[in-house]
């Protein structure tokens, strides 16, 4: 970028700056608003599902989280299968990627996409292509954190 700017006239540079400012600023705000609404909506649906499990099944606030997550992933499967989640992803950006349904979408869309290569090599091998890094870093970070905490508790008397 810096090299390019040097060759341009001051007016052009100014224009570039102006252009850049406008081009970057607008989508960020808009994307954030969209992410906020889509993400918030997904979490609100999750909350409704949690209460559904509390009301009609024997789950407490503590234990309702697991079936809620499973239900969200199930819904993500339906939406992914019918091709709705792609649109949602385009509109909501991180708002649809950050909730667990986004994680489900990453796994499921990879599984569906590679189905033609067969179930073992295609589906099995590519399922975690996108979501694998999330699992890897999540597990490793959790391992380190829990290890440090355990050591501090046992020997540091925390």
């Amino acid at each position: 970028m810096a090299n390019k700017n040097e060759k341009k006239t001051p007016t052009q540079q100014q224009y570039d700056k102006l252009n850049q400012k406008h081009e970057l600023k607008r989508p960020v705000l808009k994307n954030c608003l969209r992410a906020f609404f889509v993400g918030g909506l997904i979490c609100t649906i999750g909350q409704a599902i949690t209460y559904f499990f509390i009301y009609f099944f024997n789950f407490t606030e503590q234990t309702a989280g697991n079936p809620t997550v499973a239900t969200m992933v199930f819904l993500a499967m339906l939406l992914t299968g019918f091709g709705v989640y792609d649109h949602l992803g385009q509109y909501g950006g991180a708002g649809s990627a950050v909730p667990v349904s986004g994680f489900g979408n990453a796994v499921i869309s990879a599984a569906i996409e590679h189905r033609t290569e067969g179930f073992v090599l295609g589906v099995g091998g590519n399922m975690f292509k996108l979501a694998g890094s999330v699992i890897l870093f999540g597990v490793f970070a959790a391992f380190v954190v829990a290890l440090i905490k355990t050591i501090l508790i046992q020997w540091g008397g925390l």
Binding site: G65, N66, P67, V69, A70, V73, F74, A76, M77, T80, G81, F82, G83, V100, F103, G104, V107, I108, A110, A111, I112, E113, H114, R115, T116, F119, V123, M127, A131, I135
Partner: peptide, 21 residues
Amino acid sequence: SSGISAAIIFGFIGAAVFKPK
């Protein structure tokens, strides 16, 4: 376990039921 097992199970079912686009 629930999130990952749900993703695996539904991913597999999804792959079996839906056709790639």
